[in-house]
Design a protein around this nucleic acid. Structure first.
Lengths: 199, 199, 199, 199
DNA sequence: TATGAATGAGTGTTCATTCAT
DNA sequence: CATGAATGAACACTCATTCAT
């Protein structure tokens, strides 16, 4: 997403992408404590090459998160276009299913070991704006409580990811509980919102 | 629950309690990565003293968790006795308020860096049993969906703690959303449960 | 052997002897690296008590060695009185059999980790003098080469102990080889010395 | 004997050899307790460099021993080719002269702090086989008792090294005594073996 | 530019020794 | 005097980062 000053040579770009992918999978599967040397080994490059592309370990985290956020934003926009009313719910489900093993990203999102807001302010802002759009559409369709804001949805997402991580594949009921709460009206329980949660 | 074979000498007990307290606060505020030497320094003792009481860093985590769990179980039992119907909600609120900075405990509960079930199996079992009691009372009073089990409440708690950690003091609305979901009936939305969430 | 300024109280003397015995056995069986705390535990006393009697770990080594040397000197004197010609060989065999597990003492004698000559000069001197007496008697009986001195016998003893330690219970042949060499005449092989090695 | 999969870079090989040499000399002179940091300092490298080449302290011991054994085996083969009858005696002398300060190796050989058989099984086996060849040649020439086996020679070597270590440069007489014993015939003393010990 | 070797500060843990109880 | 808790200097080992090849 961020441009390099000079476009990378083909092999350099390949290396960069390779490291990013391997690092994402490794951190997601095994946590942020995996050494850079190990990432380099798995990517089939030298440690120096990792540091050429990502001058610190933290910058590698940031690049991964930015990359993932870009992907998520693309997915979300597509969902919003398809179905404004249910787009938000679909997106939340997508994140939880896709990121079921995404411990590294979730840790990062939850602020463990890295301050996301400060690290990838652009991606964060874009992500929040996308959430706001999904939310507005869902609220316009009467599917979501009118008193929640985008940052509340983000907070719920953080919590949902923690539950997913804790519970593994067996979290469907608790997801339903949270999403029920999100769909209900603030003062009184909604009636017409039944069909927003068809899934 | 079971104490040492011989009661510790007064000064040793004081040091042990001091280390436990300092370690709890420090890990809660700054995560599990803080060095033991730093814990010792803040507690005003030598590193060797920490290791006399807690022979490994992990055993210190376990002692903290066991200590906190014991406290929580006591609190919960009191709340259940006072108000069976709302006891569960009160307890969840208590945990979230008390543990607002309790990042270390939350990490541990979520299984990050320590396997709770294996580490303090007694505390874990007792904690789950206590949750089950609170839950049964709340369900008997018609305040909580009938299809949730104690392990679901535990999962929700993990998620709530993550939200608390992410959002800080401003999480009241998202808590309300989750607890609304927990209170709603499974199949149809409104129940007579309005007054269970008076808080 | 060495006198205290004030005679120890009965219980203090008992503690001292206890620690000495336990330390001897433990170091002999497990090497010099065993912690003082462990010695204290096995002796059933506090670590402070060990340090009251032996102000450093090295001083405990020295006391053990002095104690053992005193014992060996007593044994040797008895053997010399019984049989001047074979006394030396009998004594060497005695040391090897008694000290078969005496790794700690052997280490110390071989100068590993402690300088014996400097540590227990009195015991060392007495031990050497005793060896000289045994040797003189054996040489007078024509059982040992005339060109060896007491310090050579000591050196051979160090070597024999190393072999014992390395080979365990199966060292009889190599002992015989060394003792044959000791019995032979310097320039030409002896003839009459046959019966000195009856064992 | 088997080298690394890829030959080391020139500078890395230099560092590896330097560490090996410094470690050998240091452990030989001061025992196995010298810290790795000190080895690194004396070799003029960082501690990490030592650990890059030898991932544990024990693996450094093993590498030293394997290195020395390889060297000794080469030397021994040469001596056996030159003079079958006296090859064994020459080799024993060589080891004692070369290894006059070789406390670390002797400790290792004697099983103090490291289990040689388990650590460098190939080197150990090759070393024993080489000893067996030297011994067979010496026995065929009538220079060594017919009832000794290679493992006895090894045991004598351990003892001789202990004597060397204890006595320093002044051990010629005791060596002579032991080698006389090795040369003598088992049942009767003189043999025609006079001229085997010309040295 | 890629490599991987080198660096060195930092971490958990041990243990000889001291000292309050 | 005995006890055992406290101390703190080491030590083996790791890993983010730099740099020679």
């Amino acid at each position: 997403m961020a441009e390099q000053s000079r476009p990378l040579r083909a092999d350099a770009a390949r290396n960069r992408a390779r490291v990013l992918q391997v690092a994402y999978e490794t951190f997601a599967a095994e946590g942020l404590a995996v050494p850079i040397d190990e990432i380099a080994r798995r990517a089939g490059v030298g440690a120096g090459t990792v540091y050429r592309h990502f001058p610190t370990k933290e910058s590698l985290f940031q690049a991964i998160v930015a990359d993932r956020m870009g992907h998520l934003i693309d997915v979300a926009r597509g969902m919003a276009a398809d179905d404004p009313g249910q787009g938000l719910f679909k997106f939340l489900h997508y994140m939880l299913e896709e990121g079921s093993a995404d411990q590294g990203l979730a840790d990062a999102l939850a602020g463990i070991g890295i301050d996301l807001g400060a690290s990838v302010p652009d991606g964060e802002r874009e992500f929040m704006q996308m959430l706001a759009e999904l939310l507005a559409a869902a609220q316009a369709a009467g599917c979501v409580r009118s008193d929640v804001a985008a940052k509340d949805v983000k907070t719920l997402l953080v919590g949902l990811q923690a539950m997913q991580r804790y519970r593994g594949d067996d979290a469907e009921l608790v997801f339903r509980i949270v999403l029920d709460g999100l769909a209900s009206s603030p003062g009184q329980f909604p009636a017409g919102s039944r069909d927003c949660l068809s899934r």
